[in-house]
Design a protein around this nucleic acid. Sequence first.
DNA 1: CCTAACCTACCTACCAATTGGTAGGTAACG
DNA 2: CGTTACCTACCAATTGGTAGGTAGGTTAGG
Lengths: 191, 191
Amino acid sequence: MTASGRRRLPPAERREEILAAATELIAVSGFNGVSLGAFAAACGMTKAGLLHHFPSKEHVLVGVLERRDELDIAAVMGDADPAPDAATARAALTRLVRRNLGQESVVKLYTVLSAEALDPAHPAHDYFRRRLRTSRDRLEREMFAWHPWPGGAAVELLAFLDGLQLNWLRDPEIDFLAQWEAFADRFFAEG
Amino acid sequence: MTASGRRRLPPAERREEILAAATELIAVSGFNGVSLGAFAAACGMTKAGLLHHFPSKEHVLVGVLERRDELDIAAVMGDADPAPDAATARAALTRLVRRNLGQESVVKLYTVLSAEALDPAHPAHDYFRRRLRTSRDRLEREMFAWHPWPGGAAVELLAFLDGLQLNWLRDPEIDFLAQWEAFADRFFAEG
DNA sequence: CCTAACCTACCTACCAATTGGTAGGTAACG
DNA sequence: CGTTACCTACCAATTGGTAGGTAGGTTAGG
């Protein structure tokens, strides 16, 4: 019987499997709350086997973040033209909200991890500082030029979305889309 | 020389000192991110000394949460009458916001910990589920009766405040009060 | 007052479990 | 048959927690 239970995969495939598993686990328990062994076990392998693909636990985290960097707000704005008016901005952001609704585990990952990474000693601290600042800047310049106070609008929008995501994770019965529309009705009202 | 460096305190005083230190530390690094030894060191004592006052690390967490339970939203609403109209509600919530601004470390504690506690395995998970649900219910009943959709309003308000706090911790340059007023101008607009 | 008894806040020393990570061997595939 | 994906076995460091002794403060007996 050659059934040694040992699964050998091409590196790219294995890396992807590991990153997917790590994403789920970190999304639930945070980076500090989960161990290297747990990442490995979720892929049916050992710590040592996993460390053959990623030299350290921290490298797994980096991999997870890089892998989903395109799920950025910037990704939704993409190469689209700057939004010249409220209606266009609302449409673009509603697309973002809808898209996020279909990516629960990644949204959860970012929510949990960005809170944990408030600690300056956290390995993802700098990553989130950079990333969130540039998101805000792009939002301000390219999405809220029509707004009387673009900087404030960008902060308010990100705050509301972050907070709603957090509360939605606490209580999945919250109707995310309905809450968004109610907020947007006032936020994008001109005049 | 009697300078043994050993400080002996009455239990109530020591407990308070420990809880204050633990509050700061958890607020920075989360509960998983900090060790019993760190709590103790912050009070100039040893793990074992600390465990004389709290039987386990988890009991310290419970102590921290109980100690600040009155910083609840409910505390601000307090025994005040239900808010019958938008203006009254806005005034009450503005008081809450101002009060929180002066309690940074405790606000930070709740923000960091409530995110970490999304994990069902976290020792504070149930605490936060209970607490946030009752906050929302009270808000809905006693603060937003005037609103066309009280339940949605409660969710939206808590989401915005949570998110703004999170973003304010990431970037202290955010003008919390100004952001609040901008949000409130629309949120409490009647008609 | 003074000292001896005693309570208890606190410490040193230790423990088992878990952590992230290494060294070197084994087995699957081209 | 060689490359390399993966494993077994180990390591030092850190974790939460325990056992038992030490020292500071209080109080009773003289």
